[in-house]
Design a protein around this nucleic acid. Sequence first.
DNA 1: CGCGCTCTCCACCTCAGGGTTGACTTTGAT
DNA 2: ATCAAAGTCAACCCTGAGGTGGAGAGCGCG
Lengths: 218, 218
Amino acid sequence: MSEVRVLIADDQKVVRDGLATLLDLLDGITVVGTAHDGDDAVRQALTLDPDIVLMDLHMPNCSGVEATEQLAAAGARCRVVVLTTYSDDDWVFAALRAGARGFLTKDSSAEEIRTALITVSRGDAQLDPTVQRRLLEALSRSGASPELPVSIPDNLTPREVAVLRLIAAGRSNSEIADELYVSDATVKTHVNHVLAKTAARDRAQLVAYAFRHGLATP
Amino acid sequence: MSEVRVLIADDQKVVRDGLATLLDLLDGITVVGTAHDGDDAVRQALTLDPDIVLMDLHMPNCSGVEATEQLAAAGARCRVVVLTTYSDDDWVFAALRAGARGFLTKDSSAEEIRTALITVSRGDAQLDPTVQRRLLEALSRSGASPELPVSIPDNLTPREVAVLRLIAAGRSNSEIADELYVSDATVKTHVNHVLAKTAARDRAQLVAYAFRHGLATP
DNA sequence: CGCGCTCTCCACCTCAGGGTTGACTTTGAT
DNA sequence: ATCAAAGTCAACCCTGAGGTGGAGAGCGCG
């Protein structure tokens, strides 16, 4: 895997330079620049095109949250990882809603930072455990099921819908068989029925069908 | 720090016993029992009073989700960590809403499992990075930002993106070849590159990937 | 009761899709 | 001028997916 290119944004010079030195020594990480406030971070991110902006939240002129919003608005390719002092900061959720994909506290070890940067550069997310807990609590409180009312489409039987969902989740026939506790042959039968009913030609078209009918969530 | 007492619930005996042996060797972890389905897990959790129940999602009789709900309803002290094969399972959110505090996939290392168990036993949460990302996406969707910045994903070249879009549109390789005025061989090359870069296994997974990255619209 | 629907399973066949390797050209950056 | 990346194409192999046809079990309904 190639190096992860990181831009560091922090208003305190010692922190900035310390981090730059520390991270540059890590395997798989290259520091491509540093910024001293939010405006500077946005400007440099757009010119340097880093993979990750490692962003402090509290900065003069333009906070890390605002900078994150501006980067998203500008359609920048880079992903934002927040690095701040406290995990119970009021701005945590604001930063996450603005599009931050990572959240670290300043007592993280270099190794933890490295792991987070690589995880986020792969497209996943890496948050401080306390923040993860707060996210879960928010999920439970809101009760907000991110799932929409699903119209069970066409003449699909419940079993066929189950198979279709698993196809949309990228499963192979044999994996579906394992999960539903039936034989491969049965799965193939269901798949053929679903193909016929939905007028799809192959499972790739079935995946698209599933997304269009809310059986899978983007 | 004292030992974290763990109950393991999995319907496959080999997995169950393997995990028990593996985890018992880890520093700070003690396996206090195993269960073969959801009912069994609830029953044993209430008598053994473990710190953590390490729970598979897919189990006969009573799924991991149901078991998690029942433990919460019974006011059990223990916390639930889900350990399952796929991070994009439909039941992930259901499990988290039911109260699961951890989420691991079965290709985690022993060390990762140990870290998660200890983190969760401290009261925090530890989720698979892919699940964290999905949580963030749910947060964004439920919140304000209606438009997701069409991030041109991973390292895909323009040509590869074009091929990916056509795959998501349900085209076969030869149809794509016709539309792009190139040979079938060329299309296959591009497809293989896209598969490698996106870590997808087949075109069905590519379709899902395309929808998740805004390259195709529901 | 017979009828239809659903779910389960088997056997056989074909082929598009995917893996691998290698080669040639163009383009742009150093 | 050299190097790397992107795009184009070809030949090979192999597996999973999809097509066809059939069969038995359980269920609800007129």
